[in-house]
Design a protein around this nucleic acid. Structure first.
Lengths: 191, 191
DNA sequence: TTGCATCCATACGCACGAGTATGGGTTGCG
DNA sequence: CGCAACCCATACTCGTGCGTATGGATGCAA
């Protein structure tokens, strides 16, 4: 029903603008989020935009909220369904490693941590994920204090890898090398 | 009225501009690097700037080169002087953890990885440091392949920690918690 | 069909920051 | 002393991107 492709542009909704904004952020970063550029991409003009949103910041705000809520139902929920707690962490690592697309926005927002609207969102998301890791490590048999530090270390490694390999594109890893790296992470970080 | 209050220096050199640029980058990011803002901070006007540099990009380029060359003689050289290879990695971790200031520019550049001038610099610096870790892990008794992955993991953890705690300011760690985290890193990542 | 809300186009104002033109002041040196 | 080379101030131009004003087009309900 909702056939919204590039050639066939019916009327737009606020959600369409938010999705387009997230795509643009994922590809070119928060700094590249300009209303006229987005309008061109959607096949309309600024007049449309300023009917749906009061300002550019409002769009960013809405897009971030949308992304955060969408992220609620992410891999974490599937992982928690696994019966054996000891299976969860390795499985989490492997899944995260092979789901490339969802991390693009996160990597882009990581580079926009100077923007006031981005900071609280990233703080919440990162906190939530780190806490999940904390619980997972505890359930895997670690004592709480050590589990917390391990969770921080793990998440830092994730974030750093995103920056280095994703954004910086260094080093260029083949599939085999990448898989070996993931297995090395698992062997090193999971007791 | 003597308008020039802060520095005694009445005439500026290109190096003065580059240092000021690096300070501004460390505090407010690459995006905040504006010539008129810098000029105000230095107590002069644009006229001075465009005598020393042809363009804004030229200043950024020069500042990055200056930072990279300054970074050559960093902690790494001191660490290599340690006689016992097994002592080097723990000592490196502890020193890096307590030298806060030199990481500010690196953290800021991490958020500017979409800028064409920043990417090659960061690629070189990160590559150099990772290779140093690779050698260090090898000398500590690891086999080369595992040592390389461990080096990548370690450096990713460093980068991620920078982003999360430095830029995002999360979580707020006390000195004791931070030291405990560092020791946990050492125990986990160093064989 | 009429009337109203929704959605968009066109044309503008305006702030901000990069870069230019040009002249004045300062310093070193013969 | 005097003259360059050097350093900086003032006053512009110009492109870009946000936001506004206003009217036209489209869909839906009565």
């Amino acid at each position: 029903m909702n056939v919204r492709q590039k050639p066939e542009r019916t009327r737009l909704s606020a959600e369409d603008w938010e999705d387009a904004a997230l795509n643009l952020i994922a590809e070119q970063g928060v700094g590249a989020l300009a209303v006229e550029a987005l309008a061109r991409q959607l096949g309309v003009t600024k007049g449309s935009f300023y009917w749906h949103f009061r300002t550019r910041e409002a769009l960013l705000q809405a897009a971030l909220e949308r992304w955060e809520q969408y992220g609620e139902r992410e891999i974490i929920n599937q992982i928690e369904a696994l019966p054996d707690p000891r299976e969860r962490l390795p499985e989490l690592f492997r899944r995260v490693a092979h789901e490339v697309q969802p991390h693009r926005v996160y990597a882009a927002l990581l580079k926009a941590l100077d923007h006031p609207l981005v900071v609280p969102v990233m703080a919440r998301v990162s906190k939530r994920r780190t806490e999940f890791l904390h619980v997972a490590y505890t359930e895997a048999g670690m004592e709480p204090t050590e589990a917390l530090n391990r969770a921080r270390l793990t998440y830092a490694a994730y974030v750093g890898f995103l920056q280095l390999n994703f954004t910086l594109g260094l080093p260029r890893l083949t599939h085999e090398e990448f898989d070996a790296y993931v297995e090395h992470m698992i062997a090193t970080l999971i007791p």
